[in-house]
């Protein structure tokens, strides 16, 4: 009897306990995951749409509804790219991705009708170092590209003056270089996607 008891205590009980805990943990987290799934997906979509609006340099209220409304009104979806229409004429927005220091950087680039002048740049996703390379998401950095043409020259933070120059990010020289290489591909990609050349 006592042998059986200790067998239960030593082998079976830990197994059952572990199994029940695991099941409970997984049920709890899965439930929460399912509850928030729609919301998380809506966030993803909203992120991408906001990036398109930012790249086209349009005004919008930065809420899920505001993004949705501005997007519906002004953005047209084409095969592989987007268009924005307004008083400025037509702008073309193309998605582009390329290597960063640690992972892929995905961006949206807005171009004026000449397909060379940038109307804006927005980051869709990146995996650079937080606080360093990840600062490519900050608006002071992305705003620099407005009204300029690729290719760019990265200079020390706070020293850009010539039209081709952009401030690099201090402490993230390599991310800045990767970003420069990525933007250099824009005119070519734009010709291919929009003009079909």
């Amino acid at each position: 009897m006592s042998v059986q008891r200790s067998f239960y205590k030593d082998r079976i009980y830990p197994l059952i306990f572990m199994f029940v805990t695991t099941l409970l943990c997984i049920l709890l987290t899965s439930g929460l995951h399912l509850l928030t799934l729609d919301r998380a997906e809506a966030n993803e979509l909203s992120f991408a749409r906001r990036a398109i609006l930012q790249a086209a340099d349009l005004d919008f209220t930065n809420t899920t509804d505001g993004i949705e409304r501005a997007y519906r009104m002004q953005i047209g979806e084409e095969a592989g790219f987007y268009t924005a229409t307004g008083t400025f004429g037509t702008r073309y927005i193309i998605p582009l991705d390329g290597p960063g220091l640690w992972g892929t950087i995905t961006i949206m680039v807005g171009l004026e009708e000449d397909l060379e002048t940038f109307s804006g740049v927005a980051i869709v996703s990146q995996n650079e170092t937080p606080g360093l390379g990840a600062r490519i998401e900050e608006s002071w950095f992305t705003d620099q590209f407005k009204g300029k043409r690729a290719p760019f020259i990265m200079v020390e933070e706070g020293t850009s003056s010539a039209p081709q120059e952009v401030d690099a990010i201090t402490g993230a020289t390599r991310t800045s270089e990767y970003f420069k290489n990525l933007t250099a591909r824009v005119p070519g990609e734009a010709q291919r996607l929009i003009r079909g050349e």
């Binding site: 306990f17 572990m18 805990t21 695991t22 943990c25 709890l28 987290t29 929460l32 995951h33 928030t36 919301r39 998380a40 966030n43």
Partner: peptide
């Protein structure tokens, strides 16, 4: 193992809430 499992479950909750909100 049990402790790690419980801690991990709470961290997943933090992760899911952050991701959604």
């Amino acid at each position: 193992m049990v402790e790690t499992m419980i801690i991990a479950a709470f961290v997943i909750i933090v992760d899911i809430v952050l991701k959604a909100f």
